[in-house]
Amino acid sequence: MAPLLEVDDLHMHFFTRDGVVKACDGVTFTLEAGRTLGVVGESGSGKSVTAMTIMRLIPEPPGKVVSGDIRFKGESILAMSEREQRRLRGNRIAMIFQDPMTSLNPVYRIGEQIAEPLRLHKKMTRKEAWAAAVELLRRVGIPQAEERARNYPHEFSGGMRQRAMIAMALACGPDILIADEPTTALDVTIQAQILELMQEIQQRTESAIIMITHDLGVVADMADHIMVMYAGKAVEYGSADEVFYHPLHPYTWGLLDSLPRHDVDDKGALCPIQGQPPSLIHLPPGCAFGPRCAYAGPACRRTVPPLVDIEQGHLSACLFAGDAAFIARYENRVTRAGAGAEVGG
């Protein structure tokens, strides 16, 4: 059987006055039912554009899918009619955003907004849909759901709005929930509530989640698989454990080494990645990470490294990822102060 979602070498470019912005420039992954894919990468690396392309929410022009495919249960989303796409969106694939106010309408009651897709996609009556909305609010942990459903978005706190948005996304029982930085604007104790809620819902409904974040703690908590993006490209993809414990791309190495250690008592200096990410209009020749890569060689400037399956389902877009001696240079590095001096959690 075809996987739930397959994204195959997707390229979404923006044609602007300043030039072609290669916002999503080679993204490949598969997502199975009940699983969570974590998407990480720095600001501007194309995480949101990838998600919006899957949702078919990017206006064309200025955007254009230059090549690649997105398949939902084996069927190409790109080839679907606009009507079919609309049926998929909100119904089979739902999205939640960092800022709930972008998808909550300030002039409608929360309950009405959750009921709306149910009437549209599930052909419920007004009354049935309202009752279902109240039930959904209760399920995401809103107290006194019946009364709260009558509130307007501004009467909710940030954490409650995010819960309401999750309720809205869950309304039609989607197969895939795409969450774009759902907790970035929230405090840690509220983030913990939301992450716990998403995990609880996933266990109950078997829905798949795409979790977009720049917080490696959040992906470690949520993800079964991880895709690391850099300058519009997927540079590494694999199981969460593989990506964290045997990363195969120097950008992933740099990200992990940039983090303050949470587990050692001896605080050495951090190891940042030098320099800045490139402009997506003027990408450097060869590997886009090359100019910042501490391991780059002359070949890196000549060839754009393809994303290659190195170890059964663990993919890397580094020219040398298949070279054990090269990987050992990272694994045996001594630059990371305090590495190995673990003192327990």
């Binding site: 104790t189 983030q191 908590d221 454990d241 414990y245």
Partner: peptide, 27 residues
């Protein structure tokens, strides 16, 4: 203690074993 337990650590193995304290409500 709740704050510290609520922050997910960038280590999947450890994160699977950790119990987190979920505080109710908002500040």
């Amino acid at each position: 203690q709740s704050l510290l337990s609520a922050v997910p650590v960038p280590d999947p193995e450890k994160q699977r074993r950790r119990a987190r304290i979920i505080l109710k409500g908002d500040v």
